[in-house]
Design a protein around this nucleic acid. Structure first.
Length: 470
DNA sequence: TGAAATGTTGGGGCG
DNA sequence: ACGCCCCAACATTTC
């Protein structure tokens, strides 16, 4: 251990000090050089606009956190291997540490980089962002689970509940002279108003995620099963973007949950939702082609309509179904959408409009601050009925009934659609039906499709899939 | 982590 | 008092 031969910590989706095994072990073995490399061309899918806004703010925050512990976060752009090799040469590093990622292309890239670097120096990689490494959860016949419940049961039986890596107390800086780029040089954000608005509507740091978790466990977890479905409340944790960038880890959440509910934590529906994130990651690891292909092959030739005008109405929140439009506007304005509403807008796109789930996944990928390749892909396939443990195709959400059920007084709708603010709770779920409401709703559009007709069409399309299955 | 269509039941109006 | 019908209300089946 000496300052002349430091350890490089390759920072990726792990912008945290707590429970960060790569950072911790590097620090334990000597001085550290943390580096973030912007290489969007190496990703399975180049990060979307909203994620870049989040990433930008988060990197700034993490830079500060590291600085407080005595080290500078380096920024670079280009090919990851080239940057790492250059940094190794210039710093005389003796080892490189990182926390693993499991998206297919990235995972393959990392394996290649690891092999390449191992001929020069020591490389240590860790599973820091999931409970278990993908590939280690199999059923009795040795294949991956395709149904959530048995997967999760198996997961819970294997997970090491005490596995949490301490926060390093002080980091020894290796070399202050090394400079690549500034955060601004990475050009993650422009000066657009929406970018600023999204950046300001959140507090992106690791510390913020801990506050959110603490407050959620104290105030909201008890009523989670009911309140998580009501988008006008803050019944969900809103931790998704923090999990996406590793500002908080599943192990850390589990650690706090167990402290809060020592006897009943295993039954937590909230924890199960983190389980779905795990499930998605493991499935994508085993079936890399599902980013673009349906997991259930019989959906390969599904007769999507892909009406461009309809797609455009959906993205803009102009479908004429208030609950759907409110969700799409919340997404556009904040980079986030309540989970219940995500299911409804997704069902509307895929089933009422018969637009390919991949179009929806693209839009979410670009607009969600928590856009994660595995969760996004599997979530959309689930709604479309072609994924794992998927909603049966004949389960078609009625956007008006969902609205009445989960936003009875229209509070959520009115928050996001100004034109509907004057309607009472019986009018707000489906206005503009050839009646006198027109004066109250301004230019809010009429429904672009009739739901009951759309439902019949969707079921007919499903028949063709069932036919090809035989 | 649906909703619509269809079936069943039982109370009450009424001839 | 009785049978008949209507139709909520609930249950089951189907998509």
């Amino acid at each position: 251990m000496n300052l002349a031969s430091p350890n490089i910590v390759w920072i990726r989706n792990d912008l945290r000090l707590n429970d960060n095994p790569a950072l911790y072990h590097a620090a334990k073995q000597g001085s550290v050089i943390p580096v973030f490399i912007w290489a969007p061309h190496e990703e399975d899918k180049s990060p979307g606009a909203a994620t870049k806004v989040w990433l930008n703010a988060s990197l700034r925050s993490f830079q500060k956190d590291l600085h407080k512990l005595g080290v500078r976060l380096l920024f670079a752009k280009g090919n990851s291997l080239d940057v790492l090799k250059d940094l190794i040469n210039r710093s005389n590093a003796e080892a490189v540490f990182w926390n693993e990622r499991y998206e297919p292309k990235i995972h393959k890239r990392d394996q290649q980089i690891k092999n390449e670097l191992l001929s020069i120096l020591d490389v240590q990689t860790f599973n820091g962002n999931y409970f278990l490494s993908p590939g280690t959860v199999k059923n009795s016949s040795g294949s991956p689970f395709k149904v959530f419940t048995p997967f999760w049961k198996n997961c819970l039986s294997k997970v090491d509940v005490n596995k949490i890596t301490p926060k390093p107390k002080l980091l020894r800086s290796a070399n202050d002279k090394l400079v690549y780029n500034s955060l601004e040089d990475l050009n993650l954000t422009g000066k657009a108003k929406w970018e600023e608005k999204i950046a300001l509507s959140w507090n992106q740091g690791e510390a913020a995620s801990h506050k959110i978790l603490t407050s959620f466990l104290r105030k909201s977890h008890d009523d989670y099963n009911v309140n998580r479905n009501l988008p006008s409340l803050n019944g969900t944790s809103t931790l998704s973007p923090y999990l996406r960038f590793g500002q908080i880890s599943p192990n850390y959440i589990l650690h706090k949950l167990r402290a809060s509910l020592p006897r009943t934590w295993k039954n937590s529906q909230f924890l199960a939702e983190i389980g779905w994130r795990e499930f998605s990651c493991h499935l994508l690891f085993h079936y890399p082609e599902i980013i673009t292909e349906p997991l259930r092959k019989e959906f390969k030739n599904f007769p999507w309509l892909n009406n461009k005008k309809h797609l455009s109405c959906w993205t803009k929140g102009l479908t004429g179904y208030p609950f759907v439009d409110a969700g799409m506007r919340q997404l556009w304005q904040t980079g986030w959408m309540h989970n219940r509403v995500r299911m409804v807008v997704a069902s509307f796109l895929v089933k009422d409009l018969l637009i390919d789930w991949r179009k929806g996944a693209e839009w979410f990928w670009d607009t969600l601050v928590d856009a994660d390749l595995a969760s996004n892909t599997l979530g959309w396939q689930w709604v479309a009925g072609c994924g794992a443990d998927a909603a049966p195709y004949f389960r078609v959400f009625n956007p008006v009934l969902q609205s009445r059920k989960f936003d009875a007084n229209g509070k959520y709708i009115k928050k996001w659609i100004n034109q509907l603010s004057k309607l009472n709770s019986s009018e707000v779920h489906l206005p503009n039906q050839e009646n006198e409401l027109f004066d109250k709703t301004g230019d809010y559009p009429n429904p672009i499709v009739n739901h009951s007709e759309a439902r019949i069409n969707a079921l007919a399309a499903y028949e063709t899939v069932r036919g090809s299955q035989r």
